[in-house]
């Protein structure tokens, strides 16, 4: 019998609060237009924040109001942009498809380390101690800040100390591009075939050898071996014309420090 009293009390409280809630839903109801709802449905719904708005709801509202262009979502890409454009009756803009690449080849065995770092695993925190534990002032610190920041779990820390990109999961949102303190990630056009996976533009070849055995030594071998003349040395740095490149792999093979990477 005793059990009945608390059950009754809780039941009454539950019913009361439930009524209040349903009342509040009616009284404080926020009108959203049908268009905004449809825009929201067209967006990926990952709430990654890559667009700069607070989640997909925020972006849907901004697009509806006209504050943001229809191709603001880097994750959804061209198809999403086209869908939103058709909802709003606008012309679909062309959106260049991109892909993510890492401009460093300094694996743990190649980049020379000044000391063993012990402390919090974070690139920003790492770099305040003597500018980071690796000798190269441009290379990957290996703290995994990008891995932690990726909303799609597309990055993972490889055994060799460099982050690995899972192209099946990467949605090119560009958050890692923003968080990397050394700016080693970049979103490049989809047709990119070969990259120079090194960021040490400012260092001379001799200085590069001192800090990393995988850094570009500016020898110009890639430019000489390219059968179609797609690579030119500009300011002592190989610049690749991706339109001309046929992805034959000649430069990748001949590069003495193996810094040319095929990214097809």
């Amino acid at each position: 019998m005793n059990i009945l009293v608390p059950t009754l009390i809780l039941g009454v409280i539950g019913a009361g609060v439930g009524t209040l809630l349903s009342l509040a839903h009616k009284v404080f109801y926020v009108e959203t237009s049908e268009l905004q709802k449809r825009i929201r449905e067209a967006l990926p719904g990952t709430n990654c924040g890559a667009c700069g708005y607070p989640g997909c709801d925020g972006l849907a509202e901004a697009i509806y109001r006209g504050d943001a262009p229809v191709n603001s979502c880097p994750v959804g890409g061209e198809s999403t942009a086209r869908e939103i454009a058709s909802i709003l009756g606008l012309e679909a803009p062309s959106l260049q498809e991109t892909k993510l690449v890492l401009f460093c080849s300094g694996t743990r065995d190649k980049a020379i380390r000044k000391f063993d770092y012990m402390g919090i695993e974070d690139c920003n925190i790492r770099s305040i101690l003597w500018g980071g534990d690796i000798s190269c002032p441009y290379g990957c610190l290996g703290g995994g800040t990008c891995v932690k920041s990726c909303p799609f779990s597309a990055l993972s820390m490889g055994e060799d100390g460099l982050p690995k990109i899972d192209y099946l999961k990467c949605k090119t949102c560009g958050i890692c591009v923003q968080v990397c303190p050394r700016h080693l990630f970049a979103l490049v056009p989809k047709n990119t075939k070969v990259i120079v996976a090194c960021n040490a533009r400012e260092l001379s070849g001799r200085d590069t050898r001192k800090v990393c055995s995988a850094g570009c030594i500016k020898c110009g071998m890639c430019a000489r071996v390219c059968p179609v003349g797609a690579i030119k040395m500009e300011n002592n740095w190989p610049v690749i014309d991706q339109e001309k490149c046929i992805a034959c792999g000649a430069c990748v093979e001949k590069c003495p420090v193996h810094v040319m990477h095929l990214v097809v």
Partner: peptide, 11 residues
């Protein structure tokens, strides 16, 4: 490493 972290925040 609290000092290290606070130093980072200060910087």
């Amino acid at each position: 490493p609290l000092v290290h972290l606070i130093r980072f925040a200060k910087a």
